[in-house]
């Protein structure tokens, strides 16, 4: 297997709700290498989003070790994590999470703003990213002027604009109809073929079948981790 981008060992995430303790993840260990295409599956509440958020450095585990590109995430401060989210990770959400008052171009430029890229360079790279998701003609549209599929493609353009080493997508087709969902999935396949590492969460079997490796979670534990030979 190629060099590990993600290496987690004995990951635990516990939530405290009053007196009650909820374990979202119990002892998860896993390694994901460069240019893998992974689907994380499992029933609702099995800990998929929690795992994604930790992988995406949005959240921190209660215990366990997480090495991102060999660096120990537990030792990073808030700004280091922000910088990793900015440069190394592209996040795609089920509900798109675009800024409603900004145009597609501005939305896609946003990560570059936080990376300190000049205005001119931002526009150039954001336009390129939008062209890659076939939205070159929708650059000055605002989210409410776009269809769901188009919005998700803007979100994907935003995720790839900083040329991150992994793309994380939490149920990216969850709010889309089947046809549009397939278009989005083929976009992820293209990104994977172009050399990106793609990790996506889904509870739909046919969506998961696009991936080369399927990890199944149940009650916060890995139930199975298999290569997918159908794709």
């Amino acid at each position: 297997m190629s060099k590990a981008i993600i290496d987690i060992e004995h990951l635990v995430k516990r939530y405290e709700m009053g007196d009650e303790e909820v374990y979202a993840l119990r002892d998860v260990s896993l390694t994901i290498g460069d240019n893998e295409y992974v689907a994380i599956m499992g029933p609702s509440g099995s800990g998929k989003s929690t795992l994604m958020n930790i992988l995406g450095c949005l959240d921190t585990p209660t215990s366990g070790k997480y090495l991102f590109n060999g660096a120990n995430v537990a030792e990073m401060d808030d700004d280091d994590l922000a910088s990793i989210r900015n440069r190394e990770i592209g996040f795609v959400f089920q509900t798109f999470n675009l800024l409603p008052r900004a145009t597609s171009l501005k939305n896609v430029e946003l990560p570059l703003v936080y990376a300190g890229v000049s205005a001119e360079e931002r526009t150039r790279r954001a336009s390129e990213a939008l062209a890659r998701v076939q939205l070159a003609d929708r650059m000055s549209h605002k989210p409410n002027e776009l269809s769901g599929g188009q919005r998700q493609r803007v979100a994907i353009a935003r995720a790839i604009v900083t040329a991150p080493c992994i793309i994380l997508a939490d149920e990216p087709t969850g709010n889309l109809d089947t046809k549009t969902g397939q278009d989005i999935m083929s976009l992820f396949s293209d990104l994977w073929k172009a050399g990106n590492t793609v990790i996506l969460v889904t509870h739909e079997e046919d969506v998961a079948q696009h991936a080369r490796r399927i990890i199944r979670l149940r009650d916060g534990k890995i139930e199975s981790d298999t290569q997918n030979h159908h794709a």
Binding site: L58, L98, Y114
Partner: peptide, 9 residues
């Protein structure tokens, strides 16, 4: 959203 895509504190 801003934090998720890399805005620092």
């Amino acid at each position: 959203i801003r934090k998720a895509i890399g805005a620092r504190r």
